[in-house]
Design a protein around this nucleic acid. Sequence first.
DNA 1: TAGATTGTTAATCGATTAACAATC
DNA 2: TAGATTGTTAATCGATTAACAATC
Lengths: 240, 240
Amino acid sequence: MTTTTTTLNRRGRAEVPAALETRAANPPVSLAVFNRMPLYLRGLKALREEGELTVSSVALAGRVALNPSVVKKDLSLVIVNEGKPKVGYRVDSLIEDLENFLGYNNTKDAVLVGVGRLGQALMGYRGFEKYGLNIIAGFDTNPEVYGAINGKKVLPLGKLESAARRLAIKIAVLTVPEEAAQGAADTVIRAGVRAIWNFTAAQIRAPENVVVKNEDMAVSLAVLSQQLKLILEREEREEK
Amino acid sequence: MTTTTTTLNRRGRAEVPAALETRAANPPVSLAVFNRMPLYLRGLKALREEGELTVSSVALAGRVALNPSVVKKDLSLVIVNEGKPKVGYRVDSLIEDLENFLGYNNTKDAVLVGVGRLGQALMGYRGFEKYGLNIIAGFDTNPEVYGAINGKKVLPLGKLESAARRLAIKIAVLTVPEEAAQGAADTVIRAGVRAIWNFTAAQIRAPENVVVKNEDMAVSLAVLSQQLKLILEREEREEK
DNA sequence: TAGATTGTTAATCGATTAACAATC
DNA sequence: TAGATTGTTAATCGATTAACAATC
């Protein structure tokens, strides 16, 4: 049995024994929280542009159209240096903490499978680097696309496994045709990849220790057109 | 004051007066619900492939790894023909109802602004038609891309406003460079567009009666890399 | 008829919002 | 010191899950 002594520090916050602290440093962050973090980051960068050095939870909440309480709670998950009562949070250190939390500062190498139009677009997109993703090479079965895009090599699919394994690549971007998706996924998983960013409409089967994130445009489109429908219907009613 | 008479029909379901029914037919569906609908659709199509004519909520729930209660509740939002106790739901009519709900059967015309690599990829992607989106033309300021892609014209940006207005286009796909995003959004809104599918990293300001759906790859990537991090850390702990 | 399964209502769980003691 | 604002705890709200009467 473990005895846990819990004391209170100033402001009544619970002091956690060091052994537990490591665990608590990795709280299960909900997806809702995760989706808000980039909003704060955007708002804070705008504030920095405007020359602001500090910001209160109320001010930041107003900017991103959220409740101040949710802002305070979310920020408490990422901040290293506490905010100061009456002053607020330091804009620059908050930006740094958010970027660390989101992993933008820790560049991750990735391979891309399927150098068709979408694959080429993603390989050519320089914005990923800003978010810490570095596509080191593309792989395809079509010799016509072999060469280089945006300074990154495009190689035969057969070379993927050894290359990914040698470089210990953990992330793969999947932009193959739908019917080739599962096969490509199996290949990258064999090569040691543990996270698949799936841009195909296929549903990928993968072992439990591999993350699959679907960039599901069908869902986005459905949400968009449903919202559009509601807006148009509302206006029609109001016109009457 | 309005008097509302509410009677009960078989199974104790409340009978709603006709006047209210129209309103109730448009319940505010949460995003969580919306994201699950395409899962059901996928599962049902797989079942149809396997020759199944009916499916119970428990069976479908198992397939999509969700709770049967949530399946029953979600389906109750879309079904036209009720399921039958002891039998379940008809697979084919459920597919139809879901596709109607998601708007896949009601094709919507759209314009695309910014025919760079990503824009070209989206114009060339035939999968959108499956989901009811028809990109009728692309617009750009760069004369080098004028012509046609996938049978769709690419025209000068200057022609967008009159074309969109003439054809009463309500949806625009934004694939311009980040710094051109707000300007492009303003243009399409002037042309009468009411829904913007934003693939840029820019945050678009738009009037209340215009929907903006961000295809925010930064968020997706952050979620993916966070999950990857958790998996790798867990394994590290277990290896010790 | 008996039992499986529906649609819906009630109970539970988690996330959001409000309130507040601590404090700069 | 007085008041603004923090971090956190308590109250509220909504979504998920379980339970159940209706019924094929």
